[in-house]
Design a protein around this nucleic acid. Structure first.
Length: 585
DNA sequence: GCCGTTTTCGGCCCGACTGTTTTCAGTCG
């Protein structure tokens, strides 16, 4: 998302929140929230739509919000919001993110006690003055206080990798519990979002087994706290790690519709329902029904549900309402890349620099765990001193070692390579001749994260020895923002020079992001999915990189390391890049 | 406030759980 879009989307979200706090404005609030969501998902900066006079092409943006947007771009603020701030206490809007603090409750508190800020509300909860309001019984006040506490202690969102591990453990326990027929992860975890808020699990069983399963889920074995518990659903804070997990139980006949419903995203679901409604049907977790007569039409499988709406099945990773519904209606859902399509891994480190294993051990591990046809060793160059970067002479020695290994294995399985540093001026810190001799050259930035990186990256793409830009955004999720850069310009230069962009599959990196991968595909830029492994177990991060690619709708044709090595060489030779000779001597 | 292949007016996704209620409003996902 561009910075302007992010700011604008946040501003519209704020307005939506304020309308929710005001009474009788629920639908106006929804309209602003829809516009906010739309803008968060735009492929271009909002200024483009103003320039081309196409604001009305953005779903949820009409005359009034269109004017707000023009005003925002012209003056940097919106009068509507300034007026609202005089009418509605903006300090209370942020509280609406906390569970139990809805617009109606906050409005009542504001009206009865004239409270304006978050701190005042917390104080009034603690000193008992809120307990005096009608409708605010002891349980409700207790829950609100508890939610405040949980909101503070629970860490924001977890990395996809951590969520996958936690979710799979939970899934195994549920699958082996008596009476459980099907169990599957749902929600943003099944969509493989880069970060996950809570773990959603869907289960089918016979009705008479439900209560035992809910009891197990909410027992002390799994839960440190029970947030909600009913006949068919329950929410807990997991004992392992302060994370929320939600269980939902449905009948087998409802499995498909429930999976669609709980996999989401919210905007995908809303879009599906409005299409169903247009066709005289309605969708819920219990199935697809006719509006007339309320007749059950479908729901056993996801294919059946989408099929009833005359759509192809949509892979979970794409269900973000970014155009996939239209693709499915026209039967043009792409065949997404799969882990099994990959023929090699093109970034990893050996103990020559900061990896832990020898090249020979890595070779053995890959042969016994993967179906690859090649892999490249890409140790750091000298500038990355912390990472034990190598001098040119050491790379020459490493090349000899790889040749020897290949010779004794009678193969060309191991490719020579490097993750070379892009210096401040965009030049590389190894000489061109050495780079030209390498089979695979990834160029990455490892210092100067706050400066604009556009020129630096573009200059690197123009080097005929560089096949790929490594972790192009330089972000660490939740720790370090991407460096500022004009990504459109960088992608354009990749297109012109035939340079690929990496999807780095390290759990904290996931770099490039799905949004940038969508742009790359649109521009015709190829992508390399690599693990950047520093120890053999990390070679299995590949599935994370694949999930980014799948969320971006990428296919085999888009992914360099889904091609055979001769195809890789042919592609880069045509693009005017040098292709190495060193692994074979 | 937005939107329209039955609509330019009258809708706007749908159902479970909780708490405070004597039949339902508020909130959540």
């Amino acid at each position: 998302m561009t910075p302007t879009n992010e700011k604008l989307s946040g501003l519209l979200h704020m307005i939506a929140g304020m309308y929710r706090l005001k009474e009788n404005n629920a639908f106006r609030a929804i309209a602003y929230q829809n516009a906010s969501n739309s803008i968060a998902g735009l492929p271009e900066d909002i200024s483009y739509y103003v320039k081309t006079d196409s604001l009305d092409q953005i779903p949820g943006v009409g005359k009034s919000i269109g004017e707000d947007i023009r005003e925002f771009l012209g003056k940097g603020k919106v009068k509507r919001l300034e007026v609202l701030k005089c009418e509605v206490p903006s300090g209370l809007v942020e509280l609406m993110d906390i569970s139990g603090f809805g617009p109606k409750s906050l409005n009542t508190i504001h009206r009865k006690l004239k409270l304006e800020t978050r701190e005042e509300v917390i104080g009034a909860l603690q000193d008992g003055s809120i307990a005096g309001i009608k409708g605010f019984g002891p349980k409700k006040v207790e829950n609100m206080l508890r939610a405040l506490k949980v909101h503070k202690t629970i860490e924001d969102r977890m990395l996809l990798w951590d969520a996958m591990n936690m979710g799979n453990q939970l899934l195994e326990k549920l699958r082996s519990f008596p009476g459980v027929k099907n169990a599957e992860l749902a929600g943003s975890l099944r969509r493989r979002k880069e970060t996950v808020g809570d773990i959603d699990i869907l289960v089918t069983c016979q009705p008479h087994d439900r209560s035992a399963i809910v009891r197990f889920f909410t027992s002390r074995t799994l839960a440190s706290k029970v947030l909600a518990k009913g006949e068919t659903r329950a929410s807990i804070i997991l004992k392992s790690g302060k994370r929320q997990a939600d269980l939902r139980i449905v009948n087998e006949k409802e499995w498909g519709s429930a999976l669609v419903y709980f996999t989401g995203s919210k905007t995908h679901n809303i879009h599906l329902r409005s299409i169903a409604r247009d066709r005289g049907m309605k969708i819920s977790e219990y199935g697809v029904f006719s509006i007339k007569g309320d007749k059950w039409l479908a729901g056993r499988t996801e294919e059946e549900v989408y099929g009833k709406l005359k759509m192809d099945w949509i892979p979970p990773e794409m269900r973000e309402d970014r155009g996939e519904i239209e693709l499915a209606m026209h039967h043009r859902v792409p065949k997404l890349i799969e882990v099994s399509d990959l023929q090699g891994d093109l970034q990893m480190h050996s103990k020559w620099s900061d990896g832990v294993q020898s090249i020979s051990d890595i070779n053995q591990y890959i042969i016994s765990h993967f179906q690859y046809n090649y892999f490249a060793v890409t140790d750091h160059s000298l500038s990355s001193r912390i990472a034990g970067g190598l001098k040119a002479a050491e790379f020459r020695k490493q090349i000899l070692e790889i040749r020897e290994l290949n010779r004794s294995n009678k193969s060309r399985f191991i490719k020579t390579g490097v993750e070379v540093d892009i210096l401040q001026d965009g030049l590389l810190d190894l000489d061109d001749q050495l780079l030209a001799d390498m089979d695979w050259v990834t160029a990455s930035i490892h210092a100067g994260f706050t400066k604009d990186a556009t020129e630096r990256l573009i200059r690197a793409t123009r080097n005929p020895n560089v096949h790929c830009i490594g972790h192009p955004m330089g972000r660490l999720i939740g720790k370090r923002a991407p460096y500022p850069a004009d990504w459109d310009a960088v992608i354009k230069s990749c297109r012109v020079t035939g340079t690929a962009l990496e999807i780095n599959a390290q759990p904290e990196r996931m770099d490039i992001s799905d949004e940038l991968a969508i742009k790359a595909k649109e521009a015709g830029v190829k992508v390399v999915i690599s693990t950047d492994a520093h120890q053999p177990a990390q070679l299995h991060f590949m599935q994370l990189g694949v999930s980014v690619a799948r969320r971006a709708g990428l296919t085999k044709e888009d992914i360099v390391n889904a091609w055979s090595w001769p195809e890789v060489q042919r592609y880069f030779r045509r693009a005017g890049k040098h292709s190495g000779i060193s692994s074979t001597g």
